[in-house]
Simulated scan of single mutants.
Amino acid sequence: MASIVIAEDDRDIAELLKTVLSNAGHAVRTAPDGAAALDLIVHDSPDLVILDHHMPGMSGLEVADRLRAEASTHDIPVIMLSAATPAAARQLCDVTISKPVRPKHLLEAATELLEAREAHPGTAAQLADVPRLLAVSDFLTRPAQAAGLDAFAQQLAVLTGVPTAAITLMLNDSAVVAGSYGLPKWVREAGGVPAEWSPDAIVVAEDVPVLIGDSRVSDEYADTPLFAVSGVRSYASVPLHSPEGHVVGTLCVMDEAPGTCTEETVQILHSQRSAALGLLSPVGPAPADA
């Protein structure tokens, strides 16, 4: 059972959503506006928040912005409901759902977010670690050459025999693509993906490699957007460390075919970490791999 707060000014819709989620076993409280929702959230520390966007006084977007600005509420998963979702909502909310809301769709989204939170309860806090983020920022502000990183990613694809490769830098809420080869156009144009979309969030938060032979038989990753939307079946990723030892990003490869990524793939990725860091920080020497 999870604790959920719903902010919705339409009483009938609020009661419908409460009934759907309560029938699924969750403890649900509702608020008629943004200010009341903030009071409930601070008091209850819920596992999930569901926000209507257009509410009197304070919009759902303003509530989400305040939640992300406070350390005590920063990591609470947020779903936004709106007939016209504002662009900024995708930066502040984990999921956006168009109105009119289908109860089944809402329940599926809520279940996925709650299961992810339960499976990796410390991931968000570890990604938000300030010294780690400062180290990531240091790499982002260095004069690395995108063309060189893209060429390195192409070489990585050749070395591993896997058609798609990327060098990422992991912020608290997104995986930024520093260099890539074979990634879908929409990922390249966006510059990356939300952190929760990718196993790289686990790689960075837990400082461990991830190897997925076939996402369709993985209970943990099968429904995550990277696999469900992009059709990726095979995946391997290893952490990249700053000279001070902070995990700042990853080297990763992926394929739409199952079984392409193996233990040997992971070893090849490990062997290429120093070269990748040298390209990310051309103003100084790359640290030696552990």
Rank of each mutant, 00 (worst) to 15 (best):
D94N: 10
D94V: 00
T96F: 04
I97K: 02
I97E: 01
I97M: 06
I97C: 01
S98Q: 06
S98T: 11
S98D: 09
K99A: 01
V101L: 05
R102E: 11
P103T: 08
P103L: 05
K104E: 15
K104T: 13
K104V: 14
H105D: 15
H105F: 12
L106I: 05
L107S: 12
L107M: 15
L107T: 10
L107Q: 13
E108Y: 09
A109G: 07
A109V: 05
A109N: 06
T111Q: 11
E112N: 11
L113S: 07
L114F: 09
E115T: 14
E115A: 14
E115Y: 14
E115C: 14
A116Q: 15
A116N: 13
R117W: 09
R117I: 07
E118V: 14
A119M: 15
A119C: 11
H120T: 15
P121E: 11
P121I: 13
T123Q: 14
A124K: 09
A124D: 09
A125I: 09
A125K: 12
A125V: 10
A125C: 10
Q126S: 14
Q126V: 09
A128S: 10
A128Q: 03
A128I: 01
A128E: 05
D129I: 08
D129Q: 10
D129G: 07
D129C: 15
P131D: 04
P131H: 05
P131S: 05
R132C: 07
L133N: 08
L134F: 11
L134W: 06
L134Q: 13
V136N: 00
D138Y: 10
D138L: 08
L140F: 05
L140N: 09
T141I: 09
T141V: 11
R142N: 08
R142I: 02
R142D: 11
R142Y: 05
P143Q: 07
P143G: 06
A144Q: 06
Q145F: 05
A146P: 02
A146S: 07
A147D: 14
G148I: 00
G148L: 04
G148C: 00
L149E: 00
D150E: 09
D150C: 03
D150F: 04
F152V: 01
Q154H: 13
Q154I: 00
